[in-house]
Amino acid sequence: MDYVISILPQMLQGTMDTLRLFFITIVLSIPLGIVLAFARVSGFGWLRKIVAAYVYVLRGTPLMLQLLFVYFGLPFLPYIGMRLDDFPAAVLAFVLNYAAYFCEIFRAGIQAIPKGQYEAAKTLGMNYLQTMRRIILPQVIKIILPPISNETITLVKDTSLIYILAMNDLLRTTRNLVQRDFNIMPFLVAGVFYLIMTLILTAGFNRLEKHYAKWD
């Protein structure tokens, strides 16, 4: 027990890095995913194709590969090539990757809304923005909450991939402790930490789903 308490400060420090990446990724990738989703269902064929290709590439290759590419490969790209620090590189890779997944979730949600909802809004004089904001999106959110919840929980665990960039997130901190002390206790503590984060998210999404269930 004393040992666990002694490693807690370091593990909490690692958790902070994990949470920082998690929140920044969520805050940036969800809006980007919404924008991509609207492009994906827009009237412009070329735009739909570009976004479809983007989604295909980002979902079709490992996040780990994308992470390595942004960090090590980006500096070698002609013209746009630049060297990013490890944390910005991680954020960029995670946001680009998760936006692709969120795009598909939002697209499915938008397409699940019956045509009659748009028509009713139109006959009442609502314009495109009013229709989307007041009529369509609230209904989309209800539909997509379960898949978003899934994706978000996956993200908590995916953050551990930044281990490869030698950043001291929860997982890497844990491994360092295990190697330093020849004690596997930190693994168990890390598992509990991840479970607590997942538990909080699950509870939050359950409340949201309950809130949106009131009009069923």
Partner: peptide, 12 residues
């Protein structure tokens, strides 16, 4: 004003 076969009320 228009009234539809499927009502099309806003469920939320």
């Amino acid at each position: 004003g228009m009234v539809f076969q499927q009502f099309n009320l806003f469920p939320h």
